[in-house]
């Protein structure tokens, strides 16, 4: 039992980075980032490249993953999303564009890194014991870094001037413009930050389970599940969704045959959405 809780907490912390990133992009840009899983995957592969191939320290690899994927996100916003949003009259256009960017990243990863599962050895070795549960030091490190980042993001969004402008933009674009905010710049930053979080999450997870070029869609699906549970566009909802999915998954893997867990999660999600379509923390639509 303790082991399941420990596993759940580690998953939840990693998922929270994913959910926070997709929520940032969704609330600021009103774009559902279908490429979020691919950004995660790219972050993992960049860490693999810098650590396993270039032989650089893990910290450098993780920073590279954050910066590179963040820049990819910013470039997507400036060159693709901004233009499509300006010229299109339908919201579906940005969705299709997001799916396109997912394919773009996936194929870029296939060309650059191939289709093999890539991993790097644990950063730290050793195992802690908590009660009856075992906690490998590497997973503890991943958990710790995730927690620190989550707190840092929450502090940034809550207390910094730029973070406040991001929240304002998510709530009322015109009113934000009237406050003299450079909304284009804030949108680019928001997209970049959301993407960087996905990259970091991937860069952390590669030390635990490895990644491959095709993992993106599965991760995106998990991200969508989390924001559906928690409520789209709400930070508290993202965190709640991550905690819920992390623990459900940990319990599922412990008590159910492997492939059954996600089947059960989807069935439960459909039933849940029938009762509460806006998620736990979300506002009812319309």
């Amino acid at each position: 039992m303790e082991q399941i809780l420990v596993n759940g907490a580690i998953l939840a912390a990693n998922y929270a980075l994913i959910a926070l990133g997709i929520t940032l992009i969704f609330s600021i840009m009103n774009v559902l980032n279908f490429a979020h899983g691919q950004m995660f995957m790219f972050g993992g592969l960049i860490v693999y490249w810098t650590v396993a191939q270039l032989g650089l320290p893990y910290a450098v690899g993780l920073a590279m993953a954050a910066v590179a994927v963040g820049l990819i996100g910013m470039a997507f916003e400036v060159f693709f999303f901004r233009r499509v949003m300006r010229d299109s009259t339908r919201e579906e256009n940005t969705m299709l564009l997001a799916v396109g960017t997912a394919l773009l990243l996936e194929n870029a990863a296939l060309s650059l890194f191939g289709e093999k599962q890539r991993g790097i050895p644990p950063i730290v070795t050793g195992v802690y014991r908590i009660g009856d549960a075992f906690l490998p030091a590497n997973r503890a490190l991943v958990f710790g870094i995730s927690l620190v980042l989550i707190v840092a993001i929450l502090l940034f969004v809550t207390y910094s001037k730029t973070g406040r402008a991001m929240r304002a933009l998510a709530q009322d674009r015109t009113a934000t413009l009237l406050m003299g905010v450079d909304t284009a710049r804030i949108s680019t930053l928001g997209f970049g930050l959301g993407a960087a979080l996905a990259g970091i999450a991937g860069g952390l997870l590669i030390t635990v389970s490895g990644v491959n070029a095709g993992i993106g869609t599965a991760i995106s699906t998990k991200a969508f599940i989390m924001i559906m549970i928690g409520g789209a566009g709400v930070v508290s909802g993202a965190l709640l969704g991550a905690v819920a999915l992390g623990f459900i998954e940990a319990f599922g893997y412990a008590y159910l045959p492997g492939s059954l867990t996600y089947l059960m999660i989807f069935v439960a999600l459909i039933l849940f959405l029938l009762i509460r379509p806006q998620g736990i923390m979300g506002k009812p639509w319309g």
Partner: peptide, 26 residues
């Protein structure tokens, strides 16, 4: 030049203080 738009348009999920500070953004 400052404009107060029609329909008030506060930032609803932000504290009164943060709303006021948004005015000082620049």
């Amino acid at each position: 030049i400052a404009m107060v738009p029609e329909g008030r348009r506060v930032f609803p999920h932000m504290s009164v203080r943060d709303n006021l500070l948004m005015g000082a953004h620049t």
